[in-house]
Design a protein around this nucleic acid. Sequence first.
DNA 1: GTTCGTGCAAATCCTTTGCAGCGAC
DNA 2: GTCGCTGCAAAGGATTTGCACGAAC
Lengths: 150, 150
Amino acid sequence: MQTNPRIQGIVEKLKQAGCRITPQRLAILEVVTESRDHLTAEQIHALVAQRFPTTSLATVYKTVNLLRDEGELIELGFSGSAGTRYDGARPAPHPHLICVRCNRILDPEIRLFDELPGELTESYGYRILSHRIDIYGICPECQAAESRSQ
Amino acid sequence: MQTNPRIQGIVEKLKQAGCRITPQRLAILEVVTESRDHLTAEQIHALVAQRFPTTSLATVYKTVNLLRDEGELIELGFSGSAGTRYDGARPAPHPHLICVRCNRILDPEIRLFDELPGELTESYGYRILSHRIDIYGICPECQAAESRSQ
DNA sequence: GTTCGTGCAAATCCTTTGCAGCGAC
DNA sequence: GTCGCTGCAAAGGATTTGCACGAAC
């Protein structure tokens, strides 16, 4: 029995798209929508395994891609060691604040950006669909750790 | 004989860092700093091959990573089919306007962003190093192509 | 009962790496 | 002459795919 309205809505949408609601999909859905972190595929797999142990990594990938295509999850690809992260808690585009030392990702509160895309439509004729804003820096904890080790 | 001052400066910096200036590196340097496009590793390789035919893809990767570490080139990782792109023409962070149909990347003129990172230092204690801003949409040409094929 | 989804393993793609020989300095 | 750079081929990691079985509907 699922009481989270967001999840209920996604389940409805998936059903109407002709998708079946398997226990694996439900477990992945719960993990990605309820986590405040920005998880890797491996992390999602590990968390899902606690609730539904036999789920495979391949199924995790298939499901997050499905959710991404449905607009219910954001895929954040990074170059280098940070890899790909998934954000299912807040599917609308929003800025990310990323620590380059520990790779932690924060969601800062900035409204400014949301108005901006509109400007580009007039200037360049683009039809704006979404945007991605990443701010890279060093978090307070890592700054402290660095000054300690110097 | 190299007359481009930007390239001259990078060559100097590399020499002082103990790096050797090989013909391959110089050819790659010219390609990435002079192209207004946001090239893939394959594209860089193809363009360099015109000037210095025996250059390998591995050397392209090694050199762009070197330039990235020196801060002379920006690496733009995308998830999905767009892959990784390199921008050596404008090494300072700046917004990108990306067509989701043809994957073309434009550099829109927006100053607004440059002031913003400072705000985050006070609010979250992060030491801001750089940022990345991507706006996704459909370019005028692809919009026209789509309305034609409907 | 019919599909569709799953899980496994293999395949694929992109990027990095180990190493022998070459070339910049 | 030394040591870093190159190019090859092989390794590596992340993600996708093909297929037979099992499960949702």
